[in-house]
Design a protein around this nucleic acid. Structure first.
Lengths: 201, 201
DNA sequence: TATAATACTGAACTTTTATTCAGTATTATA
DNA sequence: TATAATACTGAATAAAAGTTCAGTATTATA
């Protein structure tokens, strides 16, 4: 009850690694099962033995990715004293993540694709909810700390996610420093706005 | 030299109208040429007589759409006294446009699709540049009017576009009023930020 | 060792869909 | 009216790519 499990783990990892690299490089649709077959040396059938289908394989990678993001974040988070610092930290991590690991492009393609099975649609929806919850909790802490003056936490969570989502797309055309700067600027604006402080709001 | 041109115009419009509705409803990839054939009653060959290919047809619709957006905007713009008002007005128009005319979803699918011809990639890039220029000019006017305190106009143009881009995605899951409110809130944040006005920046 | 379970192969299947093109019909030109 | 140009037909093409499955090999179980 060991050599089998070990083998399965190893093969699954081999497929996942190759698929991740290919999806990142070529995009979701442009990466065929045949490509993964060539890259791994294992058969098409074997891929379908370990993963439900192409969508399932990609979802697996997405969730693995999310889990790693969370882990990295938890390690960092305590280092940031204020919520404002945390926000800048989050923006930086998102920027770096995107620069190092361009699965984001394939993810956008996947999310925006019109032909998705019902269960896939649901899992994506769950993920989005997860991102929003993350933002909501972060912002709520800022409110509790009296760092922010706002009531509509849910609304702001969406604004923040929108900002990151959009930047994610734009930063694909940027160099490393440019991207990092853009994410910082986005946080500046999110926190302080651009209007002169007349504050007639 | 008349009945022919008239016929061409009419057919082209018939195809464009049907395609627009289908793309909006089903998405880009999920809309087949066959669908358009059925909806218009004209043959597949005829579609290819009037448009280079499926991509070309979609690009035609996109550019038509952009042109209309500009026209609508120019009509409204003068009604807004300050740049701040203009920004809220722009956000509202984007929200409404998206609510009434969900070609945006298909457009995202199209933009994010990994398999695009070189010339298509370029036309998309031109469009993005157009959006950024639009933002840049708007913001520059605000600076000239001393409404904003900022120097990095180009950076802010990207931030603004990112915000609208991301909201565009989120607002698909919203009702009309909710979406409008989200766009307004986004503008509030863009202009004033969420941090308490300590302004240690 | 015999049997069951698991891991894997790879060719064939299936389906989908954009695109073409030889040929026809309609309208403009001279 | 003859000829050229334009508008259109629709069946055939063609190529891709995800998925399946009957069969084989390897390992666990009893």
């Amino acid at each position: 009850m060991n050599k089998k499990k070990q083998q399965t783990e190893q093969t699954k990892k081999k497929i996942a690694d190759a698929a991740r690299a290919l999806f990142a490089q070529k995009g979701y649709k442009a990466t065929s099962i045949e490509d993964i077959v060539k890259a791994t040396g294992c058969s098409a059938g074997n891929i379908y033995y370990h993963f439900k289908n192409k969508e399932g394989l990609f979802l697996y990678l997405l969730e693995e990715w999310n889990a790693e993001w969370d882990k990295t974040w938890l390690d960092k988070e305590t280092l940031y004293p204020t919520t404002i610092d945390k926000l800048y930290g989050m923006a930086e991590q998102l920027a770096l993540d995107q620069l190092n690991h361009p699965l984001t492009k394939a993810a956008d393609e996947f999310f925006n694709n019109s032909e998705k099975a019902r269960d896939v649609e649901e899992r994506i929806h769950e993920m989005v909810k997860g991102y929003l919850d993350f933002n909501r909790q972060l912002l709520q802490r800022g409110i509790d700390n009296h760092e922010f003056e706002t009531t509509n936490v849910t609304g702001l969570a969406i604004i923040l996610d929108s900002l990151m989502l959009g930047l994610n797309q734009h930063s694909r055309r940027m160099e490393r420093e440019e991207a990092l700067e853009a994410y910082r600027l986005a946080m500046d604006v999110f926190l302080h706005g651009i209007a002169k402080p007349t504050r007639t709001r």
